[in-house]
Lab assay of single mutants.
Amino acid sequence: DKHFVVALYDYTAMNDRDLQMLKGEKLQVLKGTGDWWLARSLVTGREGYVPSNFVARVE
């Protein structure tokens, strides 16, 4: 069951495990537990961690 989110804010990666994203960017959540979610950008195809409070679910 795939679940998708949209970035509510720009996020600048703090290290090489984070995923940089721009407000409005759509992401697929690969692992969504805790404060940091592993996601893949549908724009760039890159994977990394994003802060869960920076994204909102897309139905």
Rank of each mutant, 00 (worst) to 15 (best):
V50R: 05
E25F: 04
A39T: 08
T33S: 13
P51C: 05
P51D: 03
E47I: 09
Y11M: 06
H3L: 12
S41P: 01
K31W: 05
L42R: 02
F54C: 10
K23I: 04
Y9D: 14
G45L: 07
V55E: 02
F54Q: 13
N53Y: 05
G24P: 00
L8M: 10
K2T: 11
R57Q: 12
S52M: 12
D18M: 10
E47F: 04
T44N: 07
T12I: 14
A39E: 02
G34V: 02
G32T: 15
D10E: 06
G24I: 06
L42K: 03
L19H: 04
A7M: 01
R17I: 06
V50A: 08
V29W: 03
L27R: 00
L42P: 06
G34W: 00
Q28Y: 05
V43D: 14
S52D: 04
E59W: 06
G48C: 00
G45Y: 07
N53D: 13
T33V: 13
A13S: 13
K23F: 00
N53S: 12
D18G: 13
L19E: 02
D10K: 05
D18A: 11
D35P: 13
G48H: 09
M14K: 15
R57C: 11
V43N: 13
S41Q: 04
W36K: 14
L19D: 03
V55Q: 00
L27G: 05
G34R: 04
V58Q: 09
D16R: 09
T44S: 11
E59N: 13
P51G: 01
A13K: 08
N15H: 13
N15W: 08
V43A: 13
W36C: 10
A13C: 08
D1L: 08
N15E: 09
N15R: 11
T12Q: 14
L27W: 05
A56V: 08
A56G: 13
G48T: 02
V58K: 06
L27N: 03
S41N: 11
L27E: 00
D16W: 08
R17P: 04
L38P: 01
N53Q: 07
Y49K: 04
W37R: 04
G34Y: 03
L8K: 13
R17C: 10
Q20T: 15
G24D: 03
A7Q: 03
H3A: 09
G48K: 02
L38C: 05
D35N: 11
E25P: 01
T33K: 13
R46V: 06
K26H: 09
G32E: 15
R40P: 00
G45R: 07
D10P: 08
A39L: 15
D1Q: 07
V29R: 04
V50D: 09
G45A: 04
L38K: 12
E59P: 12
R57G: 14
K23E: 07
L42S: 06
V58R: 08
L30A: 02
E25K: 00
F4G: 03
G48E: 01
Y49M: 10
S41A: 00
H3C: 12
W36A: 09
A13G: 12
L27A: 04
Q20C: 13
G45C: 05
L22W: 07
P51L: 02
G24L: 00
N15V: 06
F4Y: 10
N15F: 09
M14G: 14
Y11R: 14
D16C: 10
L27K: 00
W36T: 11
G34C: 03
W36M: 15
K26N: 10
E59A: 09
Q20I: 05
K26E: 13
F4I: 13
G32C: 15
K23P: 04
V29G: 04
E25A: 01
R40S: 00
G32R: 14
S41C: 01
E47T: 14
K2Y: 08
V43S: 14
V55L: 13
L30P: 00
D16A: 14
W37C: 11
E25V: 04
T12L: 12
K26Y: 11
G32V: 08
K2W: 08
R17E: 11
R46I: 05
G32A: 14
L19Q: 00
V55C: 10
H3W: 10
R40M: 03
V43Q: 13
K23D: 06
A39K: 03
R57H: 11
G45I: 03
A39Q: 00
G45S: 07
E59T: 12
L42I: 07
E59M: 06
W37Q: 06
K31H: 12
M21A: 01
L19T: 01
V5S: 09
T33C: 08
L8E: 06
V29I: 14
L19I: 06
D35C: 10
V55T: 08
V6D: 04
E59G: 12
L22G: 11
L38T: 07
M21Y: 00
R57K: 14
R17H: 11
V6S: 06
R17G: 14
Q28N: 01
K2H: 13
Q28D: 05
R40W: 01
Q28A: 08
W36Q: 13
S41R: 02
L38S: 02
R40L: 04
F4T: 13
T12M: 12
V43I: 11
Y11V: 05
F4L: 13
K2V: 01
A7N: 02
G48F: 04
E59F: 07
F54D: 00
E47A: 08
K26C: 09
F54A: 15
W37A: 08
D16N: 12
K26V: 08
N53K: 14
D16L: 07
L19R: 01
G48N: 00
A13W: 02
P51Q: 06
E59I: 07
A56D: 09
L22Y: 11
V58G: 09
F4A: 05
Q20Y: 09
L19W: 04
W37I: 15
W37N: 03
V58P: 09
V43L: 11
H3P: 09
L8P: 04
L42T: 13
A56I: 08
V6T: 13
E25I: 00
R40V: 04
A39F: 01
D1T: 10
G45F: 05
Q20L: 06
E25G: 03
T33R: 09
V58D: 10
K31A: 10
V43H: 10
A7Y: 01
G32F: 09
L8R: 11
G34M: 00
E47V: 12
D35K: 11
D1F: 08
T44M: 01
L8G: 02
A13P: 15
H3I: 11
V50G: 05
L42C: 14
V6R: 11
K2P: 10
A7R: 01
S41M: 02
D1E: 15
E47R: 09
W37E: 03
S41T: 00
M14R: 15
G48R: 02
G24K: 05
E59Y: 06
S52A: 14
D35V: 09
F4C: 08
R57S: 14
N15C: 12
V55M: 00
D18E: 15
L42E: 09
F4P: 01
Y49G: 00
Y9Q: 15
L42Y: 04
L42W: 05
A13N: 01
A13R: 08
V29K: 02
K26A: 07
Q28S: 05
G24W: 01
A39I: 10
L27Y: 07
P51M: 03
D18H: 14
Y11D: 00
S52E: 07
V55S: 02
R57L: 06
L38D: 02
G45P: 04
V55K: 00
Q28I: 13
L8D: 06
V29P: 02
D1P: 00
E25D: 11
K31S: 14
N53E: 12
A39V: 15
K2L: 08
Y49S: 03
K31D: 14
K26P: 08
G32H: 11
Q28T: 06
F54T: 09
Y9R: 15
F54W: 10
Y49L: 12
D35Y: 12
A13V: 06
L27C: 05
A7C: 05
L42D: 05
Q28P: 00
G34I: 03
R17W: 14
E47K: 09
K23W: 02
V5C: 05
T44F: 00
A7V: 01
T12K: 15
W36P: 05
Y9K: 15
G45N: 08
M21S: 00
G32I: 08
D1W: 06
F4R: 06
